[in-house]
Design a protein around this nucleic acid. Sequence first.
DNA 1: GTGAAAATGAAAGTCATTCGCAATTATCTT
DNA 2: AAGATAATTGCGAATGACTTTCATTTTCAC
Lengths: 144, 144
Amino acid sequence: MPHKKIIRDLNLKVTSQRLLILEVVRNGPSHFTAQDVFESVLARNPEIGFATVYRFLRTLSEHSYVTEIRMGGMPARYEWAGKRHHDHLTCVSCANIVEFENTEIERLQEKVAKQFGFSLTDHVLELYGVCPECRAKESAAKAR
Amino acid sequence: MPHKKIIRDLNLKVTSQRLLILEVVRNGPSHFTAQDVFESVLARNPEIGFATVYRFLRTLSEHSYVTEIRMGGMPARYEWAGKRHHDHLTCVSCANIVEFENTEIERLQEKVAKQFGFSLTDHVLELYGVCPECRAKESAAKAR
DNA sequence: GTGAAAATGAAAGTCATTCGCAATTATCTT
DNA sequence: AAGATAATTGCGAATGACTTTCATTTTCAC
């Protein structure tokens, strides 16, 4: 979908800043913070304010164009929501993020909600661990 | 375990403020924010500082005496970690929290981590939905 | 083109949390 | 039990991630 159409779908005016933000969000790395986006955008247009980036990212996430993940303390991470639903497995040592999907877990979540009479609207599943590379490094360090 | 012993186990000095904080944490509601604790503690000792509560709660959570749950934006919620592991199902409408445990989900999480070669250290699973009471209210409101 | 309404940038404001530090206290040491 | 000593505290100021405000541009429907 062309970027202009996305903006119009949101009932917003098409501005150069919004186009630039979309450009960066869709062509950059898949996980990014508002700060990341702000910096990339700044490089191409030094006249942009970071409030504009925040504002637009918020709007995009409210309309499910991007997914916002807020884990305690640290800045919110975003990602373009085009792809299928998935959760994250994050390395606590190097911050590398792996995406996974597991329909079995999803199904069990629904089941739990139903058990308590809740209608499920959303969920957060974030796994934390040590990735293979960091595990290797750690055992190497221990052997030394 | 007596509160003094808990504090000594942490290699900390036994002070009246730490004892008071433990008192409040262990006898109050099971889920609480630092602000909640601060206010309860203030009622019994008006000479206590906010930072002291935060500092001690942080230490307690670092040593797994309490569990800290930080969801984006809002203040961190804590709970005494004595009980068995569980996750939360939170009502987005009235903020009521239901605890649940599901070993099947836990097992699948381990499996996912193993698939990617990670050793799992931690996880966050928070389900959001509308509780039975709020669902009833909502449909009543709609019918009006 | 024109003008009303929306968007923007810069700066100030929030809010939860953390820090710096001088004054106070708990726990040795003797 | 008194003093030494090192941790702890309360306060206010600092931080960091947003969020809002508002005067000034821009956009776009006519």
